[in-house]
């Protein structure tokens, strides 16, 4: 799986858990928590969805690395 494919999946799953963001343009480097107001519940739901979709274990300690779509793609690429 390429980084771009992973990034696309990360975006799809983000919209899946935060449906009200459907329609937003989310730049790859946007700070998700600050710019799109993701809270800990959103992050947890997103991590759950990514875990299910990709089978990647994402420990709680690594949540801070999921700051943007780009950073998340990099992180997941490492873990796959």
């Amino acid at each position: 799986m390429t980084r771009d494919e992973i990034k696309t999946i990360a975006l799809q799953e983000l919209i899946g858990v935060a449906a009200d963001l459907a329609g937003e343009t989310i730049p790859g480097d946007a700070q998700l928590r600050d710019e799109f107001d993701l809270d800990s519940m959103d992050i947890l739901n997103w991590v759950s969805a990514l875990h299910k979709r990709l089978g990647v274990d994402i420990p709680e300690l690594d949540y801070p690395r999921l700051v943007s779509l780009d950073a998340t793609a990099d992180y997941l690429l490492e873990r796959l």
Binding site: L11, Q12, I15, D20, A22, G23, E24, T25
Partner: peptide, 22 residues
């Protein structure tokens, strides 16, 4: 479901214009 509406409008969550469906 949401995906059906996207399919019907020919849009996907990643490409549609910014108008929050509220």
């Amino acid at each position: 479901v949401l995906a059906d509406v996207h399919a019907a409008t020919g849009t996907t969550p990643t490409t549609e214009a910014a108008s929050p469906p509220r």
